[in-house]
Computed example of a mutant assay.
Amino acid sequence: MATRTVPAAAFHPRPPATTPDTWHPGSLWWDSKSVLVTRPIAPGSVATTPHLVLPADHGRLAFLLSSHGAEAEQLAYDGRVVIQAGDWRGRPALGSRQHYGTARIIGDHYLAERIHEGMRIKYGARTALARMVHRLANGSVPYGDLVALVELHPPRPLMIGS
C-alpha cells in the first residue's frame, strides 16, 4: 500500500506574510458594524450602499448580494469600489477612512453558505433582521445567493503635482 503526503504548501495555518494583520477580533474590519460600498453606476455618478461584511482570506472582504439586484449587475460590469468602515446605522464610522478595492462577484452556493454562517457568528440577530427586511422589500427574490469578494489595494503615497 503506497502512502501519499500532501505538499506542505497546501497547509496555511497562518495568513501569508503579505496579508495585513487585520483579520482577527479587535481589527478594523472585524469590529466594523457595517461597511459602505461606493461603486460607479454611470459615468460621473456613484452609489453608496451599506453591507454587513466579513473578513475573508488573503486580505479580502466578503459580503452578500442578491442575484436579482442592480448592485450585483453593476459590480459584475465594473468592479471598482471604495470601502469604508461604518456604524450600525450604515453611516461612516468615526475616524474611518476610505480604502480602494476591486470586487469580484462569485455565484458559488457553498461559499455563500460559509459567508452566511460567518455573518451569523459575527452579527447574530442582525442577519435575521437583514433577511426579513430584504424579504419585505423584494418579496421572493433570493437573499444573499451571490458573494462579493473585495480585494483591497494598498494605500498609495500622495504624489504632489501629478
Rank of each mutant, 00 (worst) to 15 (best):
R120Y: 03
Y77H: 13
Y100Q: 13
R104V: 15
H116W: 10
D78E: 09
A128M: 04
R114S: 11
I83P: 01
G95F: 11
M119Q: 08
Q74V: 04
D108Q: 00
Q74W: 07
L111P: 06
R97T: 09
A125C: 02
Y100N: 14
H116K: 04
G86Q: 02
L111W: 09
L94S: 15
Q98I: 03
M119V: 12
I83T: 00
A103T: 02
V82L: 03
R80F: 07
G86N: 09
T127M: 09
L75F: 03
Q74D: 14
R80C: 02
T127F: 05
L94D: 15
H116P: 01
G124K: 06
P92L: 07
W88H: 11
D108M: 01
I83D: 01
D108T: 07
H99C: 11
M119P: 02
A76W: 00
A103S: 10
A85L: 09
Q98T: 14
G118V: 04
R97E: 10
S96H: 11
I105T: 02
Y123G: 04
Q98Y: 07
R89W: 10
R89P: 07
R91M: 09
R97G: 15
I106Q: 10
M119E: 14
E113R: 15
R114H: 12
I121N: 05
G95H: 09
R89Y: 13
R91T: 11
E117N: 05
H116Q: 06
R89V: 00
H109M: 05
R120S: 13
I106C: 03
A85C: 14
S96D: 07
L111Y: 04
T102A: 12
A103V: 01
E117D: 11
E113C: 07
Q98E: 15
A112F: 10
I121R: 07
G95D: 15
I121D: 12
D87F: 06
T102E: 10
A93V: 02
R97P: 12
T102F: 10
I115T: 05
G107P: 10
W88V: 13
G101K: 04
A76K: 08
T127K: 03
A103C: 09
G95L: 15
G79T: 04
